[in-house]
Each structure stands twice: as structure tokens, then as C-alpha cells.
């Protein structure tokens, strides 16, 4: 160390001599090196220091009580809710009594998809009918149906020509 190299041997007597010299100079300067402080100041210092300690410790207490009263219960409540949500959500049974509520609950894409499929089904039915499969039922039943409803003419008028021909063939076979 620099100081130790400069003064490798600082004896006690050297130190004492220097201290004495400084004390003498201090005395000669004729000034009080230690200004006086009144007793009231020390009392006041204790009061002010206690106030600062109170402020710091109450700040700690506030933060602890806030954590105890608000933060911890809040966190516990949120975690409990999430756990409950994760484990105890009611299982969807797919047994809705109300069809409307199911449809309304469907996402838009699903509804669009169903509508498309529905129209496809209609087309498919027409195609099937065009191929003659639609009337692939016992001719007796068809005949009974037409007689019971007494609407043979309207039914025939509504049919496309090809289907009407098929129906007539079927009826002819039934006879």
C-alpha cells in the first residue's frame, strides 16, 4: 500500500506528538471545535427519529396487511376459479331438447356448411329420382297413397315428364 511504503514505521510516539501538536493548534485558534447542542435538541431528535422509524415500519405493515387482506385472497380466488374451470366444467351431453337453441349455438361456418349440405342433399334426391330410385317402392303402396289422397291429377301435373312416365309404367305394372 502506498501509505505504508511511505511510512513503514509509524510509531505511537510519532502519532502522539502529532496529536499533541494539533490539539495545541486547536487551542491556540481559540475556537470551540465542538459546538454545543442543547438538551432539547436530543429530545427532539429522538422524537423525529421515532417518527421516521414509524413511517418506515408502518409502510412495511401496510404492505403486509394489504397482501394479507387483498392480494393473497385475490390470487387464491383466481387460482381456485381456474382450477374449477379446468376440472369441473359440465360435460356436454349433446342431448339438447331444443333444436333451435342448438342451431343458434352453432358457429356461422357450421351453419353455412349445413345449409350447403342440405342443398346438396336436395340435388342428390332429384338426381336419385331422375334415376328412378325414388320410386323404388312397392307399386301397391303408391297406388294406395294416390287413391287415399284422391289427388292423382295434381300429383301427376307436378311431376316432371320423365318421372310421370316412370310412374305410369309402374302403375301399369301394378295393374
Amino acid at each position: 500500500m502506498k501509505f505504508r511504503q511511505e511510512h513503514p514505521d509509524i510509531s505511537e510516539s510519532d502519532e502522539r506528538a502529532l496529536v499533541q501538536a494539533v490539539r495545541t493548534l486547536e487551542h491556540e485558534a481559540g475556537q470551540e471545535s465542538t459546538p454545543s447542542v442543547s438538551e432539547a435538541y436530543w429530545q427532539n431528535l429522538i422524537v423525529r427519529t421515532n417518527r421516521r422509524v414509524d413511517a418506515v415500519s408502518s409502510g412495511k405493515a401496510i404492505s403486509i396487511s394489504w397482501a394479507a387482506r387483498v392480494a393473497i385472497p385475490g390470487v387464491v380466488a383466481i387460482v381456485s376459479f381456474l382450477v374449477a374451470l379446468h376440472y369441473y366444467v359440465p360435460v356436454q351431453t349433446h342431448q339438447h331438447s331444443d333444436v333451435e337453441s342448438i342451431v343458434l349455438g352453432l358457429p356461422d361456418r357450421a351453419v353455412d356448411s349445413l345449409l350447403t349440405e342440405s342443398s346438396l342433399t336436395e340435388e342428390t334426391l332429384v338426381a336419385v329420382a331422375a334415376n328412378g330410385n325414388l320410386f323404388d317402392v312397392p307399386s301397391e303402396q303408391i297406388g294406395e297413397y294416390l287413391i287415399e289422397n284422391d289427388n292423382t291429377l295434381a300429383l301427376v301435373e307436378m311431376l316432371p315428364e320423365q318421372q310421370a312416365d316412370q310412374m305410369l309404367d309402374l302403375l301399369a305394372k301394378g295393374k
Binding site: 505504508r4 511510512h7 509509524i10 510519532d14 502519532e15 502529532l18 501538536a21 493548534l25 486547536e26
Partner: peptide
């Protein structure tokens, strides 16, 4: 180190005063 510090301090104070 403290002794050296004090010694230096004393000398400087004496010199200043």
C-alpha cells in the same frame, strides 16, 4: 492502513492549521 491514514490526516491538519 488505518494507522497510515491517521498519520497522513494528522500531518495535513497540522499543516493546514
Amino acid at each position: 492502513g488505518l494507522k497510515a491514514n491517521y498519520f497522513h490526516a494528522l500531518r495535513k491538519v497540522r499543516e493546514y492549521m
